[in-house]
Amino acid sequence: MKDLFSDNSSLYQQARPSYSAEIIEQIMLHVAENALAWDCGAGSGQFTGWLAPYFQQVLATDLSAAQLAQAPKLENVIYQAASAEESGLDDHSVDLVTVAQAIHWFDFDAFYAEVKRVLKPQGCLAVIGYGLIEASDLRLDQLIQHLYKVTLKGYWDAERRYVDECYQSIPFPFEEQSVPALQLKYSWTGQQLLDYFQTWSGLKHYVQLTGLNPLAEMAEFLQQQPQQCYEVQFPVLLRIGQ
């Protein structure tokens, strides 16, 4: 499992999308008991907070202690630095395992072996993610597409393709449940958009290798109307297995 997000963890926590009630409600339709959930690759707790009201206890793990330090402090949540392949949980002790926007970095075989070890017989795995941001403003959407597909081409880690393929190409050795199409929708300022793009791993690689600012054209466009909010959305990637 790679750790690409320890640097500037506070920006990641602030700028990344949250999730939604619709996502957790869909997942909970398939959960038999609510004693313990394991949120793996929890980062700064974007999805952990959605789990906490539904479970007696939540274990949130991540390779990055710096990321976990940014997560919300919740009474029934334990944060622990651990790999996806070695949770430290007891055999058949977990009702739900979740992975939000992280599974594409995992060693699939090793992680799934750990999931099958810790899940109860009626336990459930939910893999959650979101695809490329889309904007209703045509010019902004063109700039996003150009940034992602042209400027940063060749700077993304190979694992990013699993997101581009909507998680449909990841192995998924579980009895899969049907889920509806969902989206995350936001109204973001130009600064929120720029902060979000700064968290992209491909953008970080580009800056490190070239020393150039790939957001210059985007920033120039957004600064024309600094108070404007832009309607954006992310397609939700959701696979649920038992």
Rank of each mutant, 00 (worst) to 15 (best):
M1P: 10
D3K: 11
F5L: 10
S9G: 11
S10C: 03
L11G: 03
Y12T: 03
Q14G: 01
R16C: 00
S18F: 02
S20E: 07
I24M: 15
Q26N: 14
M28F: 07
H30V: 00
H30K: 11
V31R: 13
L36D: 02
A37Y: 13
C40A: 14
G41Y: 06
S44H: 01
G45F: 03
G49K: 15
G49D: 02
L51A: 09
A52I: 02
Q56K: 15
Q57V: 10
A60D: 01
T61W: 01
T61R: 10
L63S: 06
Q67Y: 05
A71Y: 09
A71H: 07
E75D: 15
V77Q: 05
Y79G: 01
A82Y: 09
A82T: 05
S83H: 04
E85W: 03
S87L: 08
G88S: 09
L89Y: 10
D90L: 15
H92C: 11
H92K: 15
V97D: 10
A102G: 14
A102K: 02
H104Q: 15
H104L: 13
W105A: 00
F106L: 12
A110K: 15
V115E: 08
P121R: 06
C124G: 01
L125S: 01
A126P: 09
I128T: 09
L132G: 09
S136L: 08
L138D: 06
R139P: 03
Q142C: 08
L143K: 08
L143M: 06
H146A: 04
H146V: 00
T151S: 10
G154F: 10
G154T: 04
A158H: 14
Y162D: 08
V163H: 05
D164A: 09
E165R: 14
P173R: 08
E176S: 05
E176N: 05
E176C: 02
V179T: 15
K185V: 08
S187H: 14
W188E: 03
Q191D: 13
Q191A: 14
F197D: 01
T199S: 11
W200I: 08
L203A: 13
K204A: 12
H205L: 04
Y206C: 04
Y206E: 01
Q208N: 13
L209V: 00
G211H: 09
N213L: 02
L215V: 03
L215T: 02
A216H: 11
A216Q: 13
M218T: 03
M218G: 03
E220C: 11
F221W: 09
Q223I: 00
Q223T: 13
Q225K: 14
P226R: 11
C229W: 03
E231T: 10
Q233P: 02
P235N: 06
R239G: 10
R239W: 10
R239I: 04
G241F: 07
G241K: 00
